[in-house]
Structures are given as structure tokens and as C-alpha cells.
Simulated assay, not measured.
Amino acid sequence: MMIKKLSQCTLDEILTAWNDGFEGYFVQIKMNAEVFLNRLVGEGLSPNHSIVAFDDNKPVGIVLNGFRNVEGKKIAWNGGTGVAPDYRGKGVSRSLMEETLAIYKQENVDTSTLEVIKENERAIKLYEKYGYEISDHLLFITGEYESKISESLGVKDELLRPEQLPSFSFYKEDVPWQCNWLSAKQGEAKIFYNGKNEPIGYAIYRKVWNEDKKLDRIILHQMELLEKGNIEDIPKFIGTITKEKVNITTINFSASNPVSNYLIEQGLKVTTEQYQMKKKMNL
């Protein structure tokens, strides 16, 4: 078996490695060239640090990797590990993991992170074997939501660009990779204040419009309730974003986030559950 950098492979080889690698997976994530390249750029993944495994000239496995500085530390993200069905259970995953961790060490990574489907026990055991530990329980929640308030009484909002949020001390940078503002550059951000102009929450989100130029979906990357906020403020937060009936989808929201509980209580459904796993590289 040979392992190459993504940058050394053709696009057809990369797509074969990805689509075969996730064939029969828990969630359908087959991609064409446009979707794959948009994800590579949008998620800040590195072609020089992502890898593809080959059996002779056949691509049989893939790992996508990216790096960011979070709170002064270098964080690595495994944005997807896939192995073709005929090669599962034959050591390909172990070879990919060992090469990936060697890359992280070369890059002086402080903490490596990934997400894994809750039901994927084989993958969880593999990651635990290499020193990863479960750090959070994450939810994709989706469904139709209709605001029940006509005015967000007692809550004021300030519209920002996502990249402005890190300048505020309350902004939480240590979140799953796809929740970070760097994965939502094309979106919007809001800070919510109470009547005393004290920050009580914030959100990062993207609005998706349909062909009729009507609001179709809101994708929530983050919505956090701060110390001086109350659970009763959550519908007011959403009401400042839209008062229309709309589909809402959360990306990797912590199961302990009060916003997750609120949306589920409103009838939205959990479609995917994942674990975030982390490994301290200096141990």
C-alpha cells in the first residue's frame, strides 16, 4: 500500500477515494467535484496534509486534514476518514491514522479533533486506540420552525460579520470545527443584549434562499446563551433572525446547549448524533 498527499493525486482519484470510502456509511456523503472542492476550501482543509491510500493504482482510503489556531494553540481536524468496503478491516484505517498523527506531530499540533457518528462503534474504538477521548455529544437538529413572538421584547440585537466575533471576550472559540466562524465566512453573526446593554447571547448562521428568492432555511453554526441570558430569551434570539416559518438546521450543537433542548421541545428532530473526540498531542 502507498500513501500520497492529496496534492499529488488527480481529482478523479480523490473523488473515488472519498465516495468509495464512505460507501454504505451511516450518513450519505457522496460528493461530486464541485461539492468536494467547495468543502475543501470552505472548511480550510489542506491538500498538502490530507492523504490518500492506494493499492497499486487504486485509491482505497482517504483522510482530510486541516489546521487552525484557536486560543493560541494549533488545532488539527480530521475532516473525514474513509476506507473502501473491500479494504475495511485489513489495516488501511490504522495506516491512515498513523500517517495522519505523524503529520500532526510534524506540524506541532497541540490538540487533534474529529467527529464520529455515535453508532460507529468500530471507528470509536480505533480512535480510542490512538489516544482520542470523547469530549462532547453533538447533534444535528432540523425541522420547520415558526416564531411564536411578534416582537423580541427585552432583547436588542447587533448584526455583525462572523469574523468580528472573536474580538469579544465572551466568544467561544473552542467549538467543533464546522461551528467556528472560519467555517461560516459567508454567513452572518448577531450579538444579543438585554435592556441594560449587557450581552446575553450570540449566534452565527447562514440564510439559504430558494429559487423564488424566499427564505428557505437557516443553518445555525452557533447559538450560545451567555451568563446573563435566560432560556426564555432563546425564541427572541431566533425571532431577531426571522419571524417567518422556516426550516432550521443546527450543525454539531452540543447536546447540553439549552438551544438544542429548546428546538427539540418545539418539535424539531435530531437527525444525526455524533461524538466529538480529542487527543492531546504532547502527551
Rank of each mutant, 00 (worst) to 15 (best):
K190W: 04
F67L: 11
S7T: 13
E265S: 13
S260T: 09
L225F: 04
L45I: 09
N230F: 03
V35Y: 01
Y104F: 15
E173K: 13
L45Q: 13
S256Q: 14
I3Y: 12
P59L: 04
I234C: 04
G42P: 01
F26H: 14
V175N: 01
N38D: 12
P47K: 14
K269V: 07
L15Y: 08
L215W: 07
P258K: 12
M2C: 04
I191R: 08
I234T: 04
Y25A: 06
D157M: 09
I234W: 04
E128R: 14
I124V: 15
V41I: 13
V60F: 01
N19S: 02
S256F: 06
G154P: 10
L182K: 15
A123P: 09
E144V: 08
G72N: 11
T81I: 13
S46W: 10
R206F: 00
T113G: 00
S93P: 02
R206M: 03
V92Y: 10
K125E: 12
G195R: 06
G89M: 04
E146R: 10
S254E: 11
E158D: 07
D136L: 01
Q266P: 09
K5H: 14
N252Q: 09
Y130S: 11
H221C: 03
I141Q: 05
E198V: 06
E98S: 03
L220F: 09
